[in-house]
């Protein structure tokens, strides 16, 4: 087990809503994790490259634009192609309930919508990465 969990928080696509991503990044930092924040307008390729270079345990995608059904599977496929199958993927933002099963089918660990407490998110990341 490594000393500190490392988590990448990214905003894929053209979506400019970054409050949720920043709230989650700060909450994970306050829970003792090392959080790499990539900022806005990331392509799936950029996210996979950053996850590889930063050797993260988990990737968190924040999407409020409605483009999650195209963006999320591309990130997960990219991670697999890069040999990063062990990296857990979380998604948050505006995700309709009916899309959640398909996202989980694609390999997403968990999906969190508006109003989720940061404590819930912290615990989910810890559990999925084998801590807590």
């Amino acid at each position: 087990m490594r000393e500190r969990l490392r988590v990448l928080i990214a905003k894929p696509g053209l979506d400019g809503h970054d409050r949720g991503a920043k709230v989650v990044a700060r909450a994970l930092r306050d829970a003792g994790m090392e959080v790499i924040y990539t900022g806005l307008r990331q392509t799936p390729e950029m996210i996979v490259e950053a996850a590889l270079q930063e050797d993260v345990d988990a990737v968190g995608l924040s999407i409020l634009s409605g483009a999650h059904m195209t963006l999320v599977p591309r990130v997960i496929q990219g991670l697999r192609e890069a040999g990063l199958d062990h990296v857990r993927v979380f998604v948050g933002g505006i995700i309709p309930d009916e899309d959640v099963p398909a996202l989980k089918e694609a390999g997403v660990e968990a999906v969190f919508g508006p109003g989720t407490s940061t404590q819930t998110i912290v615990e989910a990341v810890r559990r999925a990465c084998g801590e807590g």
Binding site: E34, V35, Y37
Partner: peptide, 12 residues
């Protein structure tokens, strides 16, 4: 003990 590493934002 946590950290927010944000330098990549400027290196896109």
């Amino acid at each position: 003990g946590g950290a927010l590493l944000g330098d990549r934002v400027r290196m896109r």
